Simulated scan of single mutants.
Amino acid sequence: MMPLFFFLFFMFMVVYAMLIAYYHKAWNRLPEFALPEKQASVFISVIISARNEEKNINALLQSLQDQQYPKELYEVIIINDHSTDNTWSLLQAYNGELMQLKTLQLSDHVEERNAIASYKKKAIETGINAAAGELIVTTDADCRFDAGWLQTIASFYETNEAKFIAAPVTYYNRSSLLSIFQTLDFLTLQGITAASVYKRFHSMCNGANLAYERSAFYEVDGFNNIDHIASGDDMLLMHKIFKLYPEKVFYLKNRHAIVTTEPAASWKQFFHQRIRWASKADHYDDKRIFWVLLLVYLLNVCFLAGAIASFWNHTWMMLVLLLLLAKVLIEFPFVNSVAIFFGQQRLMKYFPFLQPLHIGYTIIAGWLGKFGKYEWKGRTIKK
């Protein structure tokens, strides 16, 4: 039994090494977008769903107001998703002369069959229905933007005639263990996102920084057939558009396009966030990403099983440590190259030491994403 287990463990590691090498090569080959001299002119509608974001709203509005893109070429639509704090009052108090801002209230009516799962998608859909823009840009209420964010997205859209654009996201760097861990984990995800979209290997993105044609949204019937899933306003929609326009889905690699967002404030919030992300895994039409996620999960389970086995056979401890070192050596060059792009390279000194924590969280979040429940914006969602 043990020889068979070790063989599977070793084979998972070999395949994983090949996969990471593929991502690393694709990331390095993905060119950074250089803005053309010609000024973009597409009209943009920025859509944001906000729920209980009173501590972030003012900074969000200021960051949007500071955009270099001409004020007459973009509007901001913020949909209040039944906030129980002062979010709506703060939105109403904003001086509308500084930029084009529409504030909407999400209807109390949500179809019973969809219940809680529909809220964010319904908010985005409400915003799109009220939008005047040819290009829809979605982000979150706790995000901040470089002044050239919208200008870069608009130029990339017009240059490539894109239908869907996934763009870079990172976390504010805090000094806590939780913040460092989240940032490094997210850097890995961003590298994989960029590489997979560039190579059209599988669909992947993050809802904090997306752009897509309004017409393409309606062509794929929006969130229809995925509106019963609590997450998925990003990747599941992306795949619907990818199936219709496989050559018009892109990743925008440019530092001015980076969106910065808040990390989870506690370990509990972090796990609930990751469980929510994991919960949509079995809903992917793109089965390529399902097999990638399964490989990663099984590899991490092997590490846990090997660590448990080492209590009875100390030889296993040496084997697990050697494979753990191999995992670090496989991942480090890739994550380091992504960290350089995001200006987070100084955090890489912590990367090897956080591996056991990463393995544990992957196993727990993956399992609970399939069989558990989680809290999201004060709501409890059950699988």
Rank of each mutant, 00 (worst) to 15 (best):
I20N: 01
L30D: 01
P36H: 01
E37M: 03
S49G: 15
K55V: 13
I57Y: 09
Q65N: 15
I77V: 07
I79R: 05
H82V: 00
N86E: 14
G96L: 12
L106P: 07
S107E: 14
H109L: 11
E111M: 08
A115E: 13
K121H: 02
E158L: 00
K163F: 12
I165G: 04
V169P: 09
T183D: 12
T183I: 07
T188R: 15
T193R: 15
F201V: 10
S203K: 03
S203F: 01
M204W: 12
A216C: 06
Y218F: 11
Y218Q: 02
F223V: 01
N224P: 00
I229Q: 01
D234M: 00
M235I: 10
F242P: 01
L244T: 14
K253N: 07
F270N: 14
F270I: 06
H272T: 04
H283A: 08
R288K: 08
N300Y: 03
A305P: 03
A307K: 13
L321H: 04
L321T: 00
L323M: 15
L323V: 03
V328N: 09
E331S: 08
N336T: 11
V338E: 04
G343V: 07
Q345I: 04
Q345D: 11
L347D: 03
I359S: 02
I363E: 05
I363N: 01
E375Y: 12
W376G: 09
G378R: 06
